[in-house]
């Protein structure tokens, strides 16, 4: 494979000599940079196949590497240049798993803004494809648990259980997962917002409706926190939902 990606050249393989003399001729400046060849023979072609076979990943092969997605991406532009959707697609199609793994620390950072998908001239569902890449890596144990995945699972479990989401439980449940000591009432085991060891900003924000005597707001949210809103007739449907998710291995890892 011709390496046309600068980032596939590891720093160890770039040799630069200060002075280079060949056959008595000083060639420094022209010939003093040598890149050692790299042989890659562990392509995993099944990886791309698995992606193509999923309904949300099948557009991956339409990509012609124009990089419009990367140019649009706010995570690439405003956070970390190593986050590069075009490159991830390239690596996934080639099946260069170890190169993907090297980027595992940034790959989860996609905020699902869909600028990439919107602008891709080839009709690749870029955001979906990136998530399928991550999902496939997770399925094969190639990537460790990352924060957004923890949150996604936490969220989905709440949907599965109740059919609905409740902001308070989501927020405080997540804070608790971050290692804060959230105080809960002894009977229903629901978090009490104003005491306990929560971040300062959260404390201040929860105090706001109290300070402004916004009684209606407080009562509504307290009620929802104590008695989680539920979808009626949910049980039979929940069963099917759980089955489908288990089939996909969604809850396992």
């Amino acid at each position: 494979m011709a390496i046309h990606e600068r980032s596939l050249v590891e720093p160890e393989r770039i040799l630069r000599k200060e002075r280079l003399v060949i056959d008595g001729i000083d060639v420094s400046g022209d010939w003093n940079l040598i890149i050692l060849p790299r042989v890659i023979n562990d392509y995993d072609l099944d990886f791309a196949k698995e992606i193509v076979n999923s309904p949300d990943g099948k557009t991956i092969n339409q990509c012609y590497q124009c990089s419009y997605c990367t140019a649009s991406c706010p995570v690439h532009n405003y956070w970390d240049e190593r986050y590069n959707p075009r490159h991830f697609i390239h690596l996934a199609r080639l099946g260069l798993i170890d190169e993907l793994q090297k980027r595992a620390d940034v790959m989860w950072r996609c905020v699902s803004c869909h600028k990439c998908t919107h602008r891709c001239p080839k009709g690749v569902l870029v955001e979906e494809v990136l998530k399928v890449i991550l999902r496939t890596m997770a399925k094969r144990g190639l990537i460790e648990e990352y924060p957004s995945k923890k949150f996604d699972k936490f969220f989905t479990e709440q949907v599965l259980e109740y059919g609905r989401i409740e902001d308070g439980e989501l927020l405080f449940g997540w804070i608790e997962k971050q290692g804060y000591k959230v105080v809960k009432d002894p009977i229903l085991r629901k978090p009490i917002p104003f005491i306990g060891e929560t971040p300062e900003w959260l404390k201040q924000l929860t105090m706001k409706p109290i300070k402004s005597m916004n009684i209606g707001f407080l009562i509504l949210n307290a009620k929802h926190m104590l008695f989680h809103p539920r979808t009626k007739n949910w049980n039979k449907f929940k069963h099917v939902l759980r089955k489908v998710m288990e089939e996909e291995g969604a809850l396992a890892h």
């Binding site: 957004s148 995945k149 949150f151 989401i165 979808t231 449907f237 099917v240 998710m245 996909e248």
Partner: peptide, 25 residues
Amino acid sequence: EDYNCCGAMESKNVTFMGTMLLNAR
């Protein structure tokens, strides 16, 4: 009446069919 959560931007990263079902309901 009696709708369920759409799965938002979170569930879709975990399960494809699951989010299709949630919204189809």
